[in-house]
Amino acid sequence: MSVDKDTVRRIAKLARIALEEERVEPMVQELNGILAWVEQLEEVDVEGVAPLTSVVAQKLKMRDDVVTDGGDADAVTANAPLGEDHFFVVPKVVE
């Protein structure tokens, strides 16, 4: 499988990374280089093999329903590029 320019533009959109038009073609080449290389995986017979879900042999840990966190909006918003009254502020989102 390989990607074309439209696919690269679509993926970049999905990944929310602005891709200048002149970078699209080089990116097509780079991604296709990698995809061609990973194509060798098709040689492997994976019939009846379960995909690995975790290398850790244990049950999912669960915590108790106790409030142990939060209550520090200062810390949560301390690194915000733009904020007001403990809100994060972004350009207006039109619903």
Binding site: R16, I17, A18, P91
Partner: peptide, 21 residues
């Protein structure tokens, strides 16, 4: 949005994401 680099001249939220990243 919450931390890290934010592009300075974003026209809307999607533009902000795409340029910042």
């Amino acid at each position: 949005v919450r931390y890290g680099h934010r592009a300075s001249n974003a026209s809307d939220i999607i533009d902000l994401y795409e340029k910042s990243r």
